[in-house]
Design a protein around this nucleic acid. Structure first.
Lengths: 146, 146
DNA sequence: GCTTCAAGTTGTACTATACAACTAGATCGG
DNA sequence: CCGATCTAGTTGTATAGTACAACTTGAAGC
């Protein structure tokens, strides 16, 4: 196995470990907001509002799954839907003020946990690590590799 | 927000995107072996056999969850349990030959998908990326950050 | 030896998810 | 203009993964 293959193997494995732990600790840290919900809210903030279909595509989820998550978030008053006047099939999702607050709060505590864990890392490494992840995910999202 | 904070934010977000896509594509790629099962088998191979409790700790899963997964894998003939003669509470889990084969097969196809996606990456970057992930996950696994 | 601890199993409930069938609105070719 | 087709989203249904709690069995310590 070449060095590159070993690295690829490691990337797979470690990404999976990360994912499992993230899920576990997210549940413990914020019972009020599941990891999925948090993620969706984050995407809404980042994108400044988008459609359910966009969320589904971005996270490789079925539209029915997103539909239910969105319905729950709306019920909790964290997001609102605005009918697109141009196209009445489309609902553009936006964070409510409550949604923004909760998201900010969860983000703060998540960031704190991350910071603690990453406390020994030089900034240069953090930036490079982040860049690798972005570069990896920027590839085609569909129907292929994880 | 400092550059380090931005990076931390990005790391969180991109890790999550990765995790969701990984799950989705894993289901499509290998209906015969769920992402969890694959992961557990991989850990068994890597560690050369371990206890269910170790798996639970490593992946931040409940022991009952692991117990069921292990039972399913045993039913499928992919792993076997060996009672520890020193301590009869303990069952050491090992891959069977069939388990090794399936794992190798799935690993090959996963690796191929990864390779394709990582095809443009210089080996140096792959190695560094892998090192970052390992370093990240090597931190304390419990009760804290994702 | 009785109590306490550790490994694992089983009962139960819940959540995330996918797939399929459906509704409602838009678009396009004639 | 109108039916065929496409797109966004919802709802019905089934399944898998998960946690928590209660239990069983074996080990260890006072």
């Amino acid at each position: 196995m070449t060095a590159a293959e070993t690295a690829v193997e490691t990337i797979q494995r470690e990404m999976t470990v990360f994912a499992r732990r993230a899920r576990a600790s997210a549940g413990r840290m914020h019972p009020e907001l599941s990891l999925v919900s948090y993620t969706l809210l984050g995407h809404l903030e980042e994108s400044g509002g988008c459609r359910a279909t966009d969320l589904a595509a971005h996270y490789a989820l079925d539209k029915s799954t997103v539909s239910r998550q969105v319905a729950a978030l709306e019920r909790s008053g964290l997001i609102e839907r605005r009918l697109d006047p141009e196209d009445h099939r489309v609902q553009v999702l936006h964070l409510t003020e409550a949604g923004q607050e909760i998201l900010a709060q969860v983000t703060r505590s998540r960031r704190a946990a991350f910071r603690e864990r990453l406390t020994d890392w030089p900034e240069e490494d953090l930036v490079r690590f982040a860049a690798y992840l972005e570069r990896y995910n920027a590839g085609p999202s569909d129907a292929d590799s994880p």
